[in-house]
Design a binder for these strands. Structure first.
Length: 269
DNA sequence: ATGGTTGAGCGTCAA
């Protein structure tokens, strides 16, 4: 038998601004591994001592000036895997992969920050949307080309709500970037390269589930116009290792919080 | 149809 390992993912929307809230996350979820997106900190300005001070001595990060940026903080040793391509050849900091030291052997852990895709769901009118579709197609192709996936976990802000019950109004959002048919089909094709949706494993449709609420709502809880943009996938061989999921909805009320809330999954590894 | 808010970093772009 393995040991329970808790892996959390959070779009922190500026690591330096929300280091205090990262401590709140640790207190609330007690994760063994934290995968962050939108750290918005160039590597030379990363607060290098902070992860160890919070109890995560094994930390890796990939950031740039102003936007994007990913980081993985871990209580257990991690080793960076660098086999993946520079997605869409942009030099963006949208992906980190590590081999995570787990009791039953290493876990291949991917932390993704998929492009948001701008406002207009049209490749010609909006190149950001085309970039997003290209990114998920390239990711799908890369995973599809690999030998059978095993002991792999993929998390992140994938910026797509794939299912009808992942948005507050399916019909109304079919034309809104994050829930267009091209995006949802692309994301599910990527998932189908060998992954299981670990959170929906516990909370099947049609129960509604969101991880993001816009800053542009006066009262996010009252309007509840949410979307499930943040995901945890596990390779099919790990389905039996899944123990629980947590969507930390209360984090949306943290003082000066992110517009995304943390999501975590516990596995017996 | 539109506007609403936030962060980085200093004019706007990205979300």
């Amino acid at each position: 038998m393995g040991q329970p390992i808790r892996i959390a993912t959070w779009n922190i929307n500026s690591l330096r601004l929300r280091l205090g809230l990262l401590r709140e996350l640790v207190a609330a979820l007690d994760p063994d591994v934290i995968c962050l997106q939108e750290t918005k900190v160039p590597d030379e300005l990363f607060p290098t001592g902070a992860p160890a001070e919070m109890g995560y001595p094994h930390a890796v990060w990939r950031g740039m000036k102003g936007y994007n940026g990913v980081a993985i903080l871990s209580r257990r040793p991690v080793a960076v895997l660098d086999a993946a391509p520079d997605w869409c050849g942009r030099g963006d900091c949208r992906h980190l992969a590590v081999a995570l030291d787990a009791p039953g052997g290493p876990i291949e852990l991917h932390d993704f920050y998929v492009p948001a895709g701008g406002d207009i769901p049209d490749r010609e009118a909006n190149p950001k949307y085309g970039h997003k579709l290209d990114f998920i197609a390239e990711a799908r192709a890369w995973f599809a080309a690999r030998a059978a996936l095993s002991r792999a976990v993929l998390v992140g802000d994938l910026n797509i709500a794939p299912l009808e019950s992942d948005v507050w109004n399916h019909k109304q959002l079919l034309g809104v970037v994050s829930h267009t048919p091209a995006e949802t089909a692309g994301l599910l094709a990527w998932q189908d390269t060998g992954f299981v949706d670990a959170v929906r494993h516990f909370v099947p449709e049609p129960e509604r589930l969101y991880t993001w609420w816009s800053y542009r709502n006066r009262d996010w809880r009252a309007s509840n116009r949410g979307r499930r943009l943040d995901h945890v996938w596990v390779s099919r061989d790990l389905t039996g290792a899944l123990r629980r999921q947590i969507v930390l909805k209360d984090a949306r009320d943290w003082t000066q919080g992110s517009d995304h809330v943390p999501v975590a999954v516990e596995l017996d590894l």
